[in-house]
Write a protein that binds this DNA or RNA. Sequence first.
DNA 1: TCATTTAATTCAACCACTGAACAAATAGCG
DNA 2: CGCTATTTGTTCAGTGGTTGAATTAAATGA
Lengths: 419, 419
Amino acid sequence: MTVVWQCQGVNPSAAPAGAVRQGSLRELNLALVLGRIAAAPRPPSRAALAAETGLTRATVSAVVEDLVAGRLVTEAEPQPRAGAGRPARGLVLAGDGPAGLGLEINVDYLAACVVDLAGEVRHHSVHRADLRPVSPADALGQLVRLAAGARAAADAQGLTLAGAALGVPGLVDEAGRVRLAPNLGWRDVPVPELLAGHPPLTETVDGVPPLVVDNEANLAALGELHAGDGPGSFLHISGEVGIGAGIVLDGALYRGTRGWSGEIGHIPVRPDGPPCRCGGRGCLEQYAGQEAILSAVGLTGADLPADTAPNRLAELAEAGDATVLNALHEAGAALGVTVASVVNLLDLDTVVLGGGYAPLAPWLRPPMLAEIDRRVLTAAWAPVTVRVATLGATAAAVGAAGSVVRRIIARPAGWLARL
Amino acid sequence: MTVVWQCQGVNPSAAPAGAVRQGSLRELNLALVLGRIAAAPRPPSRAALAAETGLTRATVSAVVEDLVAGRLVTEAEPQPRAGAGRPARGLVLAGDGPAGLGLEINVDYLAACVVDLAGEVRHHSVHRADLRPVSPADALGQLVRLAAGARAAADAQGLTLAGAALGVPGLVDEAGRVRLAPNLGWRDVPVPELLAGHPPLTETVDGVPPLVVDNEANLAALGELHAGDGPGSFLHISGEVGIGAGIVLDGALYRGTRGWSGEIGHIPVRPDGPPCRCGGRGCLEQYAGQEAILSAVGLTGADLPADTAPNRLAELAEAGDATVLNALHEAGAALGVTVASVVNLLDLDTVVLGGGYAPLAPWLRPPMLAEIDRRVLTAAWAPVTVRVATLGATAAAVGAAGSVVRRIIARPAGWLARL
DNA sequence: TCATTTAATTCAACCACTGAACAAATAGCG
DNA sequence: CGCTATTTGTTCAGTGGTTGAATTAAATGA
């Protein structure tokens, strides 16, 4: 079996673009029913699923039988019902079936987590370490050890790891190679090759590579998508050392033609502004990046580790520090200008502040909203919501693990065939 | 039968998200085979289609039989073949089946055109008239007369109009109401109601409304998509009096959550720049809009009708007029800054200059490319192409008509059921 | 106790695809 | 000219999966 390592597919279309064969029918309906079970607020009965989907109850029963046999779904306790009639048997996603392993490498920590089909985080571990002075190979070695712990925890809970995803703060190509991770100091790091020496994290399942490497901001947006209520469209802004964003359009992550979408940190705010590392001038990162905010306050990254800086700034702002308040106001205004561009372009109704921006949201939001209201053409008819991410700093790892189980929910036939 | 008028669906997904019933199988395969026939560079045989799609020849034959019976496909003359074997019978889209009616209302002209299944423009007519002083009702009255002529031309060629689409330079809501068309001076114009008095342009077919109202820039991008070679992702910039854009992602127009995407004219270039009509400051339109370019040259819109201004400017630039060259350079640079933002956000590989920008492209391109190279993070690995639109000023009307026939190609079952 | 109501299963019918066999139409070759 | 090889397209029995109606299951309420 050839083990292929690759980046998350550039655009995974849920529906098969190819031939629709006899068996595709069952495949599609398995996905349809499982998707409804996953999206339902409370365990639905077979009858309810039939009514929702338009399939007959006979078909739903047959499909559910397959799902239960494959350990993807289990029956919940009968719900007490109001009125007459045989009580419904509720269906829920299995808590002891396949699970996803999520990994994250960031500037000053490594993280691993395990998420089950229902989206519950069943294991989570973080290893703090400044990874900038460490070689990529050593960093990945540490990651493998963390992953082994996560795998043991999954086994102990009766979960089967069905795949893994790794988030990296940088640009990843289709082969899983990290082309550029500026804040980590990585350039052209062949993650798959470096991991090849270690025992693979999981086995290849149904043609899906055992490990998918993806941009951290993309995975964080996916985490937010699955944590939120239902699909939709939003921009998820991850304010780490750099500024990245994940774009969710109609419930699907948009990755761009090469998978490099969401680089809002380098959207020009003032074309003649201060020069940026990237070669441009006046990029958003120069106004709202963590280092920009810190230096406006008279601090540098050397004074504060990157992961504690946001909370420290929030404390100072809470205490009424005028310099900090002013710096956050400026950063928020720059974010607002950029978000206005994005909303004018994409007509989004929601923007989510994640990563390091989450604790700073109370101070960033007002200037953001002011700029958005002023600059978005359709703001009068269609207000834009700016909200705080529901997942905290763990968003990328949880999103990575979630992307694995979501793939199973979107295409259960692959998992069932594996049995 | 209730006649419903509506805006183009916000996000028409090709594949059914709902239940996959017995008959859906055939529906999907009809669409699959017809789509391949439409996309093929030369008339494919049934055997070739079977090989391409993965269906058996038997199934392809059955599907093709349905398509031929429904006048969507006809057999071409047998192709001369190299080597032994029974000669293949090539399949082509029918030139005498359903066709689409495309309409456009713009500042100083009305247009109508008829496009057949194969994408050929079978009729095209333009009526020049300054529509700013005319009431919306009167303008639509003129449009209805133009449409009647187009319908007669279609009838004369044996074509059946299967629907119509109307492009308007403004924001359109789901009900087909024009919320705002600044350059036309329209505000909250209920196009469907105003057209209700006139005989409908076509009958409702299979639940699809007879007339779809959409943004002109969106339709122009669709026209460019269908005129080009295959799907892909690009930004199509329509430089009319205002600046609009259509966003095509993976071969599908992205309309945004309310259908108001692509308003790049109001993306801020310099947040503290000159005030804009929209209430913001330093919008792209202030630097690269037609009026901005003209006033930089010392002219006003009163001197030149909007539709001749671009060609006039091109002549002056060709002659080496330094003021004009400078104005175009500035406009191109502003466009480049904005496009860099878009590419950083969406990771597109192609930008198309359409509408009034097409004749000016030789002068706009160099400064655009310079800004893009400087400001796009991934420019070093993934060059961005800036090309001129292949359709001329007719893009919106042709795109509108094309959207009608494309809908049939994407979902032929609806058309077949109508018979 | 029994009618009523809702849930889930069973089963014959049917629809569309599959795979193999077959008919059709041509080129190449002796 | 006839024969074989080759490729196209059709026919037909077989099969998988959905359908719809009938049936069984399990509760409530009068």
